[in-house]
Design a protein around this nucleic acid. Structure first.
Length: 449
RNA sequence: GGCCCUAUCGUCUAACGGUUAGGACACAUGCUUUUCAAGCAUGGAACCCGGGUUCGAUUCCCGGUAGGGUCACCA
């Protein structure tokens, strides 16, 4: 029998990490065993369901690299629900009950209730083993608001049955719904699928992940500049460990290693730090031209909003330096927003008092700056293209005079910042002419005091 | 509160009765060509508690405790 799984999100909000986890786990299992994946938009709650959310869920899952074979909307299947409902009413396994509406107090409504056989339901969960419930306390629970308006519990069972779902892989918040669904299933005469309930992930304080404990929408991670494969990798390994022990895995590798039995039993805290680490791994692995394209786009946009002239060539040569410093694209926006990269695109504004390093005198600092300027200007233009060559030119002098005393004022004059990449790299990137000009500017500044 | 599930470093986890309890993230310290970043090295850091079973329990069983889930005419 071929495997058929489903992911049935309810389109009542943007695609969140939990939705993505459900989709990933189902996807991995189906792909591993050559099964069929059904995406079913569980839109039975007509008040909260919106097409906009359904679109978002599809969009984000596709962005993550997931796909499905069949797509349905629960509300478009009501015909079959009504038929199934009528069938068990006719068989007296369910009945219509006229009672006061809970949705509209004061009004009478005809809801459908299942005739509960009041027995102990036992089922086997692939992840947790045998679980049993006494369903007596459930009473004759409601399965439809009206004959043509089924509740989720009922619709799910009918749809799963009709679609031949063989494996139900879902969060453990559904574990106590399972006996209820099994009762409906048995009334309807459908075969019981294999169940696998994975634990929910938690917020940093071990509480349930909600809007309050941080970002949960996939789209917000995307907007912050997380890479799809990185997020996917993290989400998949949050609650599942590959038998090989590998932590960084491609979708293909995950499919190859995936088994339901390896899903953990306890809930894991969603750790943004670790996600960032994953993202960095993937950022590092990006082809350089792809990285540059994106970093240039971010750089350009950010500089232009601050009215700083954009320089494509400069941006491109900055790429590898940027790659060393960020984990997520958002980090680059922060970096540039804080002005830490400005000196590559405009003249820096050093403060004269900070040009000398520590207690080094102004006179000595000026002497060093002038010497370094001479050493730099002696470098032939073509050799200036190599930062190593620049370092070599200055190194011996810095060694004898004191590295800090020489290198600090050099770097500070070039960047105007207390923290920056090393002076040789900077001198190389901004070019010989600009470097000499900036040293002159610093000398003028410091001698005026 | 009833019912259900879970329990190893701060976090994610490995271990499937006998290990110096391993790895990753984070953290601390050091090193490398001033600062920053990266990199490398080193380090601190865990078996929830109490009973059993056993020659021997982190591992198996029971109880407690804690956390989570669920108790809708939501999904």
């Amino acid at each position: 029998m071929s495997i058929r799984v489903r992911f049935p999100p309810s389109p009542t909000g943007f695609c969140h990490v939990g939705t993505a986890r459900m989709a990933v786990l189902n996807y991995l299992y189906a792909k591993k065993h050559g099964g069929v994946i059904i995406f079913r938009s569980e839109d039975t709650d007509k008040e909260r369901s919106k097409l906009e959310y359904e679109e978002d869920i599809k969009e984000q899952l596709q962005w993550l690299g997931l796909s499905w074979d069949e797509f349905y909307r629960t509300t478009e299947l009501v015909g079959t629900h009504t038929k199934a409902l009528q069938k068990i009413i006719d068989e007296d396994k369910a009945y219509i009950s006229e009672e006061e509406s809970k949705k509209e107090p004061g009004k009478m409504a005809k809801v459908v209730r299942l005739r509960n056989p009041n027995k102990v339901v036992t089922f086997t969960d692939v992840i947790r083993g045998e679980i049993s419930f006494d369903t007596t306390e459930l009473k004759d629970f409601v399965i439809a608001r009206a004959i043509d308006d089924p509740l989720y519990q009922f619709a799910v069972v009918v749809d799963d049955g009709d679609m031949g779902i063989t494996h139900v892989i879902r969060g453990e918040d559904h574990i106590s719904n399972t006996p209820r669904q099994i009762l409906i299933q048995e009334a309807l005469g459908y075969p019981r699928p294999v169940y696998a309930h994975y634990p929910l992930h938690l917020g940093a304080d071990r509480s349930k992940l909600s809007k309050r404990t941080g970002d949960v929408a996939v789209r917000s991670y995307r907007e912050k500049g997380y890479l799809a494969p990185a997020l996917l990798n993290y989400i998949a390994t949050l609650g599942w460990t590959a038998p090989s022990g590998k932590e960084v895995l491609s979708l293909e590798e995950m499919i190859g290693e995936f088994e339901l039995e390896d899903i953990h039993k306890s809930g894991a805290v969603f750790d943004t730090e670790k996600l960032n680490w994953y993202n960095r791994q993937y950022l590092q692995a990006l082809p350089m031209d792809e990285f540059t394209k994106e970093s240039n786009a971010i750089l350009k946009a950010s500089l232009e909003t601050r009215a700083i002239a954009w320089n494509e060539a400069m941006g491109t040569s900055l790429a590898s330096l940027i790659r060393e410093r960020i984990s997520v694209w958002e980090d680059l926006r922060t970096l540039i927003g804080d002005g830490e990269l400005d000196f590559f695109f405009m003249e820096p504004k050093p403060e004269s008092s900070r040009i000398p390093q520590g207690k080094v005198s102004v006179a000595d600092t000026m002497r060093h700056l002038m010497s370094v300027k001479q050493l730099l200007s002696d470098i032939p233009e073509r050799e200036y293209a190599d930062p190593e060559r620049i370092k070599a030119a200055v190194w011996e002098y810095a060694g004898t005079e004191g590295r800090g005393a020489v290198l600090w004022p050099l770097r500070y004059s070039l960047t105007g910042l207390e923290r920056s990449p090393d002076p040789f790299e900077v001198a190389h990137l901004i070019g010989k002419e600009a470097a000499l000009r900036r040293i002159d500017a610093a000398l003028a500044l410091i001698s005026n005091v």
